[in-house]
Design a protein around this nucleic acid. Structure first.
Lengths: 367, 367
DNA sequence: TTGTAGGCGTTATCAG
DNA sequence: CTGATAACGCCTACAA
């Protein structure tokens, strides 16, 4: 900057103003500065600037690397994050693996914030036993949880109405005539999985269905666990006429087992999932009926809330619940031995409705 | 720091030494400082420290978000990165999406480096048409490309011997007795895909196989494209007895189509993939014979090289080629109408060999 | 619209 | 082993 100031006969401060996009600089002066900057290959030293501004320019994304990096969930979430925090915003994402203990108990994340290495934190799909949220809350870190309803209730978060999703799926199956409906659980480290199961139990109770207890099988979101559950369910007696799983991966695995057992989908058994994140698979399984979780939108909104907080200096707060919608495809249909209420072909009747967003407490989006 | 200095009756500099882990501080002095620091809730301001040290503490990871975030490749790569650059290393990962134009032509990445926002860059699986490598090369940025052999030859990189992988797979099939071997290509934006195809053509030529041209089908690594190719190949006349695909996803899709057509694997058709990254699927397809690509190891090594460069100040250089190995599982076997040379059951004969690493030019690893 | 003086929190240098 | 002083490159406050 000194060099440019000398070259142009101005002061460092004026040069500084140009690069800080201050509007109290004469256009001609700005030109002169920019010209000299180009000539001298000058580039702002963000280290110095940020040091001065007491900000890092980084937004931390905390997540369990191995748990979710491998899957469409993260891809969708990042799409949303990037929509909110684009290239121009001057913020960059920093990645933190909450798998490590130091991260998990909050020590490391807290330290990073205190040390000014991140300006704010987006927490993606934390586990229910993650302790760091509590730690961070005390620190008054600008923090937004995306994809989960944190147990620590005062933490700002964006998640979705899992219960509604299961309800929609189950009612869809019920109205097709299904009564023997089975369920494959998700891992209990995720509150979402627990909520989904709870909603299923509630559905059973509401409809007065008295299915055998083995109609509810454990699962951990993995293909392997889906297959295991599928084998038990489909070879049981009497087998369910419909199987609802806690995520799409397990639903596909169930379809795989069904096909292996020579069962047609949906003629012999209906299968429904949860998430609607999987790419429509290559055509060797019927497209999946599933509850659509607006991950991208949740992420985008969460990032916007955080950004807004960073700009205003007001800590983020409040919860946003987004509605899950039902996407009916070809893996569900009328059960064999039943006269269902609906027509047998339900092809591609899409009921997605992304604008179905419920704002409980929220500052306006900065679109 | 001033506060601590006052409290302890020392100088700022001495306090500084304590936190910089300098060993020229008396133990008792260090104790006093740390005690005061705890009492005053002092935490080093990394912004100031890094400003002074002219480093950001961030390592950039440049990749095409949507292209690869959704899949096991990134998960593996990050596992490797983290092995090399752990929590203790004081480096954090920053994420850059090379999908955006500003990143693609290198402007943004270059700017980030000049602006001191990243100390070095790991480029994950770039496309052949990515322009940023050239730009960055000129800037003398500490940079390592992982998972691809860059066209710009002087760029430091860690990739694998794709050709060898295809060769191993093809020879395995050939020795089982297969002659009508088909191939599903990968997208030409990846040089890896081109190398794999080239290796396949070389294999055909070497064995003097004269298969119809439609035995080579286009693909883009997606499940959808795999299915499309599978349908054409398996319904063709004469159909191939074995199908080699450019990645595992497409191989699974081909298996799906095969099962849909009522073909048994490997009795009616053998299928082999490339990558060995997919979780062993839930048991509804036979476990896949595939070429194992040591993504995690490549990433780890790449990150080590970069770290080493950052510590020594010497720009990274040289190429490391890691060998692909063959993992034989149950999706390949002796063709129906042929008397293969080998036994029909080749179950779980694993030939993985991760230590098969070839160092062409390289500084020693900092284990 | 531009300039002056001073400060941000750390480390480097060199002396003791 | 410890200390005094200056420097890093930018920004804020206030003055002109």
């Amino acid at each position: 900057m000194d060099d440019i100031a000398r070259e142009t006969g101005l002061t460092k401060k004026t040069v500084s103003r140009v690069f800080a996009n201050s509007n109290l600089v004469k256009a001609s002066t700005r030109e002169r500065v920019l010209e000299a900057a180009k000539r001298l290959h000058y580039e702002v030293n963000m280290l110095a600037r940020n040091f001065n501004l007491k900000r890092s320019g980084y937004i931390g994304i905390a997540m369990h690397y191995q748990q979710i990096l491998d899957g469409p969930y993260v891809a969708e979430a990042f799409k949303g994050f990037r929509r909110a925090i684009s290239d121009e915003s001057d913020y960059v994402f920093a990645l933190f693996d909450t798998e490590s203990e130091s991260c998990n108990n909050g020590t490391k994340l807290a330290k990073f914030y205190r040390q000014r290495r991140v300006d704010g934190i987006l927490v993606l799909a934390p586990h229910t036993d993650d302790q760091f949220l509590g730690t961070l809350k005390q620190l008054a870190v600008p923090l937004v949880v995306v994809g989960e309803k944190p147990t620590c209730s005062s933490v700002c978060s964006v998640f979705c109405n899992d219960g509604l999703g299961i309800e929609l799926v189950c009612n869809h199956l019920y109205s097709l005539g299904h009564r023997r409906i089975a369920f494959v659980e998700g891992p209990s480290i995720y509150a979402v999985a627990i909520r989904r199961k709870k909603a299923f139990l509630h559905f059973l109770h509401e409809k007065g269905l008295n299915n055998p207890s083995w109609y509810i099988q454990p699962g951990d979101f993995s293909s392997r666990s889906g297959s295991a559950a599928g084998e038990i369910l489909l070879q049981g007696n009497p087998p369910p006429t419909a199987i609802v799983t806690c995520n799409d991966t397990m639903a596909v695995a169930v379809m795989g087992i069904a096909q292996k057992l020579g069962l047609r989908i949906p003629e012999d058994v209906s299968v429904a999932g949860f998430d609607d994140l999987l790419p429509l698979n290559g055509g060797y399984f019927p497209p999946l009926t599933t509850a659509h979780q607006p991950v991208c939108e949740m992420a985008e909104w969460g990032a916007r809330v955080l950004l807004n907080s960073l700009q205003t200096g007001v800590l983020p707060s409040g919860k946003t619940v987004m509605d899950v919608s039902l996407t009916i495809r070809e893996s569900t249909g009328v059960p064999k031995h039943t006269n269902g209420a609906s027509s047998p072909k339900q092809k591609k009747l899409k009921t997605r409705n992304d604008s179905d967003v419920t704002y409980e407490v929220q500052q306006p989006p900065v679109h």
